[in-house]
Design a protein around this nucleic acid. Structure first.
Lengths: 200, 200
DNA sequence: ATCTTGACTACACGCTCGTGTAGTAGTTTG
DNA sequence: CAAACTACTACACGAGCGTGTAGTCAAGAT
């Protein structure tokens, strides 16, 4: 997580520690005392700045959302593979993505809204790109979920590759793996037709 | 979760309730008392049968693993799309998958071993199927993660589609969406080459 | 008829959690 | 210089947790 000038305050340290620990252990799994210790402050100060655990989580949601949208815009203007990646899948935002995924699984509305936004972005992009699936909405939702899957299973994927996917090399490999999934069709459109008829 | 003859015992009811609640709320999020209430027994009986929460989780891991492998074999022999789906993605095993994903995220070795097994199965399958990605291991790991992603984000995907993906209709739609992802290449192999050169 | 065993419950324990309260130190404001 | 405010800590609270213990009850063995 890269720092900004105002971010040397205790409040920012608490928020950063919360995002990291919530992301690693889940919301229930990380206690206020753990977060306070990680940030090098007393547990009372967490309460002083954020009021409650729920409010701390909302502050984290908001911050993660803002940062994600910032990075997303940066990548959109820089071109490259970015267009393929409306919700940025960039090593820089690993901790944020990890946190958002956990927050989503624990029912965060802000995080879920980000997901829905990503689905819409993919919908628009796929239209402009000339992709015409049977059910564009379902296609876009599947793609949005797919892009987050690597974060969810980062430990398992790392174990499968034999190297941490947060390392430059591991990240490059799994990124390449994803590109292969997106470039090599594993069934033909004809087969898809056949399956759909079977199901009816 | 479908029942078997022996499954009318209190022990089985506890295990089923545990798999459901662990899957819905995470391991930390579901207490022994919650599970006991859901199974219609006292919390002491959970301890009597399983010893500890950790042991209960391991029993759930083991049971989920066995059932998954059973279903996996069934689907493999029944042909159809099954070959495409070495780790069965079948509505029948939704609660099991949900549980295994949660257990995996909380560091279960049994669940992680299942994931690694799936990666190997996909590796073998992709070879026999004539798919030749740059990095077969990374490709297989990505595919394994992708297949589980729908379970992780089932609430978000359901919200995006406007209908529950555990319903027959919703399941058919997201299944179709996945098939479209696997049948429509979104970048060409040439573009992949270009990107790889850029990154170097 | 008594003993044993296993399924099952009730209840109490110590711990950690989120939260509440009181108070201190340093800076800002009048 | 005093008052007020803000960042911050220490400590106590009640609740819920996993766990431990004691005991009930029905069924089968001796």
């Amino acid at each position: 997580m890269d720092r900004r000038a105002e971010d040397l305050t205790a409040r920012a340290r608490i928020r950063d520690a919360a995002i990291r620990l919530f992301g690693e252990r889940g919301i229930e799994g990380a206690s206020i005392r753990d977060i306070a210790t990680a940030a090098g402050v007393s547990s009372g100060l967490v309460r002083h700045h954020f009021g409650s655990k729920e409010a701390l989580r909302e502050a984290c949601d908001q911050y993660a959302k803002e940062r994600m949208l910032e990075v997303s815009e940066e990548l959109a203007t820089s071109g490259g593979v970015a267009a393929l990646d409306p919700v940025a899948l960039h090593p820089r935002v690993f901790p944020l993505q990890l946190y958002l995924v956990r927050s989503m699984m624990d029912g965060s509305e802000t995080a879920t809204a980000l997901f829905l936004g990503a689905v819409e972005t993919i919908e628009d992009w796929s239209k402009g790109y000339g992709i015409n699936p049977q059910d564009r909405r379902a296609y876009s939702a599947a793609l949005a979920a797919i892009k987050l899957s690597v974060f969810v299973f980062r430990d398992q994927v790392s174990k499968a590759l034999g190297e941490d996917i947060t390392s430059p090399n591991g990240y490059a490999r799994i990124g390449q793996g994803m590109l292969d999934v997106f470039s090599i069709p594993i069934i033909t459109q004809d087969q898809v037709e056949t399956i759909r008829k079977q199901e009816k």
